[in-house]
Simulated scan of single mutants.
Amino acid sequence: MTLLDAPIYNAARAKRNRNIIIAIIAVVVLVAVTGFLGFLTGHGWFFATVPAEHRVNKFLETVEAKDFTKAYGLWNNDADWQKHPEQYKLYDFDQFQKDWGPSSDYGVIRSHQIAITKAVGNGTVMGVNINGGKTPLFLRVDDKTKQIGFSPIELYVGP
């Protein structure tokens, strides 16, 4: 094949190839910006903590509804915890009710707001303001087991 035997220009194919290249560049830029924003905000990848936040929101909404049996199942990620309560001796249902029921440090829990969230190690730590409080309670969701627990790590919320 010589230069004079070049194939005929196919406008549709050229347009498709151009659109594919533009789409690839846009995806690369979007991933880079999202990762950079996540790095700046301390969230790792930008939306990596959303499932854990959703889990804690669901748990606290259940506590607000005073459905402590279901809330304890969410805490342990075990809806059938009543069939084998001996697995949860370290933090049993009675202690859970003391910590989250009306006699807790917060009284009756009526509202909550997640103030800060950060992926730390193999879990997600978040500070939650209970009943409009100014000092957050720090909870942790394990990435593997999806269990909620009190966090030994406290995040800096600011002045």
Rank of each mutant, 00 (worst) to 15 (best):
F93V: 05
P136L: 09
Y88Q: 02
T124D: 04
Y9W: 09
I20H: 02
A12I: 04
W75P: 01
R13F: 07
T69V: 15
G38I: 08
K134M: 10
T2Q: 05
Q87G: 08
V157A: 13
V29C: 11
K58T: 15
E61Q: 12
Y91G: 01
A79R: 05
R55V: 00
T124F: 09
D67C: 07
S104I: 04
D5N: 11
A12N: 05
A11D: 12
A71G: 11
V63Q: 02
G149E: 13
A115Q: 06
F68S: 02
K58M: 09
V128A: 08
L37H: 05
Y106M: 07
I114Q: 07
F36S: 08
I153Y: 11
T117H: 06
A119I: 01
F93M: 10
D80W: 00
F46A: 13
Q95M: 13
Q95R: 14
L30A: 15
K134P: 00
T34C: 14
D94P: 02
K144T: 10
F138A: 06
F39W: 15
R55F: 02
L40T: 08
K83P: 00
S111N: 10
A6T: 09
G123M: 05
L90N: 15
H43R: 15
L74G: 02
N129K: 14
L60I: 05
E64T: 03
V128P: 05
D92N: 15
G121V: 11
L155R: 05
F39D: 04
A6L: 12
I109T: 02
L155M: 06
I8G: 05
P159H: 13
I153E: 11
T41F: 13
L90F: 14
Q95L: 11
T34I: 11
G101F: 10
Q95I: 07
G101V: 03
V63R: 04
T2H: 02
P85C: 04
I130Y: 07
Y91C: 01
T2L: 03
L30M: 14
I22M: 12
A23T: 13
A65T: 09
A79H: 03
T69G: 13
V29G: 10
G158R: 10
S111G: 10
D78A: 10
Y156W: 01
T41D: 13
A119K: 15
I21P: 01
Q87C: 05
T145N: 11
W45L: 13
D142Y: 05
D78R: 05
I116S: 09
A65N: 14
W81I: 08
V33H: 04
V56P: 01
P136Y: 06
Y106T: 00
M126R: 03
F138V: 04
L90Y: 10
A52V: 00
V141K: 06
K98Q: 11
A71C: 13
A23V: 07
Q87I: 00
A14V: 11
E154R: 14
G73V: 02
K144C: 00
T62D: 10
S151E: 06
N129I: 01
L40A: 08
W75H: 08
K144W: 00
L30W: 09
A48D: 13
P102Y: 03
N129G: 02
W81K: 09
H84M: 06
K58C: 01
Y156N: 13
A26F: 09
A23K: 02
H112G: 08
G132F: 09
A12C: 01
A48W: 00
A12V: 04
L155I: 12
F36K: 00
I148M: 08
Q97Y: 01
Q82T: 14
T49R: 03
K58W: 10
R18V: 03
Y9H: 14
N77H: 12
